[in-house]
Design a protein around this nucleic acid. Structure first.
Length: 374
DNA sequence: TACGGAAGCT
DNA sequence: AGCTTCCGTA
């Protein structure tokens, strides 16, 4: 236990500063990274625990820091990180070459991946890392309340995302139908009125939802981390879009301030430029927030004309005893975070759908050689 | 700079 | 198992 290579600045978390917080409540787990059960077969701290520890501590911001996408971090000073790691492990000859070999072993374990093209940049696979432990990763710089909310939100999002993946094909089918209707009509409003009808708001037939939910709860279905686009002729149209339906869907439905949504998800919501391509639709009373959704049904992410990624977007959630994890209205938001004055009108469209529509509408005028939306 | 095989250590 | 050490390769 004792090592001759004395560490003058052995990094430890501040008391009370949880590395992660438990998914269920706000219970702190200050030293969980050191608990033997979190490092199976070893009493020693694991490298990825150590990395998280450094990332947690402002003291090391010039050496290693969160940067870019959610879970992504940059080793700003590889030699220094290696030195600190060597101190912790009593390995005086540790260097970045060796440390990075250890990091590369994490690729197969799906704990980390490399951010290609960015020097010294890696990304935690939080989705998989958190799932088995029942923990939820923190966002940088969030307070306890935000962390707790994010924890709940992400947990729900994980489950919902899988269900949404199941609904993607029918969504695309709905979009195709609507687009077909649009090509028959010259009136754009017709397109949107047809899209506002039930197929898009609840694209998955109830039995399919039940099945998907049951499978998910039994764990026989992925949590959506292997995102798949629908096959079929719609693939042509979908190719070139950077993201499938975002897990943000679940977050939106569950009322949450966008600042709590990982950037990684947030930026997918409204690709730059798409808002100007969408026809303005007069607000429909049916689409106002607060409209009760059918319990257990889905509503798709709201695209709003102003295209403000940071504009609060929230709609009411009707808990479904059958499909949804318990999430009482009281938990959905803290009053300070929501600003009802800023509620917007929404399109009941995913951006995928809207992109399909846009493309198809454009397609009637000219043959676009490439999509210039991204 | 990054990858991954091979062997060794605890 | 989880690295550490070393090294050939791209």
């Amino acid at each position: 236990m004792h090592c001759s290579y004395v560490d003058p600045c052995k990094p430890r978390p501040h008391p009370g500063s949880a590395v992660w917080r438990s998914g269920g409540g706000s219970q702190n787990i200050p030293d969980w990274a050191y608990k033997p059960e979190s490092a199976p077969g070893s009493r020693q701290v694991q490298l990825w625990h150590f990395i998280l520890e450094l990332l947690q501590d402002d003291q090391y911001q010039d050496i290693i820091a969160w940067q870019g996408e959610y879970g992504e971090f940059v080793i700003k000073d590889p030699d220094e990180v290696a030195k600190l790691w060597g101190m912790r492990k009593c390995k005086p000859h540790m260097n970045y070459d060796k440390l990075s070999r250890a990091l590369r072993y994490y690729y197969n374990k799906r704990i980390l991946y490399k951010t290609k093209g960015k020097r010294f940049t890696y990304q935690f696979n939080f989705r998989e890392l958190a799932a088995p432990v029942g923990l939820t990763p923190p966002l940088p710089h969030q307070n306890a309340a935000a962390a707790a909310m994010t924890a709940q939100m992400l947990d729900i999002t994980r489950r919902q995302h899988s269900l949404l993946m199941a609904g993607q094909n029918s969504l695309v089918a709905s979009a195709r139908n609507a687009a077909a209707a649009a090509s028959r009509s010259e009136n754009k409003d017709d397109v949107f009125s047809s899209l506002q009808e039930s197929p898009l708001q609840s694209p998955i037939p109830l039995p399919a939802q039940r099945l998907a939910a049951a499978r998910l709860l039994r764990g026989s279905v992925s949590d959506g981390s292997e995102e798949s686009l629908p096959t079929s002729e719609s693939e042509d149209v979908l190719r070139g879009m950077s993201a499938p339906i975002s897990p943000l869907v679940g977050a939106v439905r569950y009322q949450c301030h966008p600042s709590l949504i990982p950037r990684h998800y947030r930026h997918r919501m409204m690709p730059p430029g798409i808002a100007s391509l969408l026809p303005q639709v007069p607000s429909s009373p049916q689409l106002q927030s607060g409209q009760p959704a059918t319990p257990g049904s889905f509503r798709f992410p709201m695209l709003y004309p102003g295209s403000l990624p940071t504009t609060p977007t929230y709609i009411g959630y009707v808990p479904s005893p059958t499909f949804s994890p318990t999430f009482s209205p009281a938990q959905t938001a803290s009053p300070g975070l929501l600003n009802p004055g800023r509620r917007r009108h929404f399109f009941s469209l995913t951006w995928m759908t809207s992109k399909l529509i846009t493309l198809l509408l454009e397609n009637r005028k000219r043959k676009p050689k490439q999509m210039d939306l991204m």
